[in-house]
Design a protein around this nucleic acid. Structure first.
Lengths: 122, 122
DNA sequence: CCTATATTCAACCACATGGTTGAATTACAG
DNA sequence: CTGTAATTCAACCATGTGGTTGAATATAGG
C-alpha cells in the first residue's frame, strides 16, 4: 500500500484545494492534454496556468512529457489513490463507529514523524 | 449522495492540506476532544490551535458543542465522505481506464458553475 | 536564417495563511 | 464578589499563494 508521508499529503491535498486544479484533473481524466489545452477553459494567463500545473506535478498528481515544444500532461494514479486511502480510513470509522480503530491510528502515528510539532516538516 | 459544491470542496481539501489539522482529525477519531486537548500535542499557542479548529469547523469536518466554558469537538462524517467520493471517481478512472467516464465528467461540470473562470468563487 | 508557437521565468502585487502576544469573554469555584 | 480556567478576539508579522506582465527559451516551419 502506497502511503504518503506528511509532506506529500500536504501538497496533494493543497493541490486538490483549488477549483482550477480540480478542473484540470478532470480534463486530464479525458486523456492527455498540453499546457495550452489545460489553460484554455480559464480566464487566466498561461503563466498562471503553468503554475497550477506545476503544483499538480510537484504533488505527483500528473506527469509531463516534453514533446518538441509542447508539454503533454497526463494523470498519475499513485498519489490520489493514497489520498483516497487516507480518507477511506476515516470513512471506515464513520460507517462502523468502531473505537477499536484507535489502534490503527496509533500505528499511523508511529509511521510518521515521531514528535509532530508544528514546523517539523517545513 | 452528498455532493459538495466547489466552494466547500475548496475548504475541505484546504483543511486536509495541513498536518496539524489532519492530526487533530485523527485524535477526534478517538472520540470527543476539547479545544485544549486538541491543542495539547502541538508546540503552538492555543490561539493558533483555535484557528485550526475553526478551519476544520467551517469546512464542516467537525462540529462543536459548547459545554460550560469548554468547547467539545467531534467529527462530522458528511463532508469527508464527499471528498472521498470525489477521489473515488478518479480511482475508478485509474483502475478501469474507461474513457466512457468522460460523460460523467461533463455531468459533474453541469452541476457546478457553468463558466468556471478563476475567481468565480472568491 | 527568420518568424511564429508553446511554454517558462522573473519581478511584482494583493491577499490569505499560520504563527505570535496581550486583552477580552465566559463560566466555574471559593 | 473574586479569582482562575477555557477559549476567543484583535492586532500584528513573515511567508505563501494566485494573479499579472514582459522578457527569455526552445522548437517547428517556411
Amino acid at each position: 500500500m502506497v502511503e504518503l508521508q506528511s509532506l506529500q499529503m500536504n501538497s496533494v491535498f493543497h493541490a486538490l484545494g483549488d477549483a482550477t486544479r480540480r478542473r484540470m484533473l478532470r480534463d486530464l481524466a479525458g486523456g492527455e492534454r498540453t499546457v495550452g489545452q489545460l489553460a484554455e477553459p480559464f480566464a487566466i494567463s498561461l503563466a498562471a496556468a503553468s503554475k497550477h500545473i506545476k503544483a499538480l506535478e510537484s504533488a505527483g498528481l500528473i506527469r509531463r512529457e516534453v514533446r518538441g515544444r509542447t508539454h503533454v500532461c497526463r494523470l498519475d494514479p499513485g498519489p490520489l489513490a493514497s489520498a483516497h486511502e487516507w480518507l477511506n480510513f476515516y470513512e471506515r470509522f464513520w460507517t462502523n463507529r468502531l473505537d477499536a480503530l484507535d489502534r490503527l491510528l496509533r500505528e499511523e502515528d508511529a509511521r510518521q514523524s515521531p514528535k509532530s510539532k508544528k514546523g517539523d516538516d517545513k
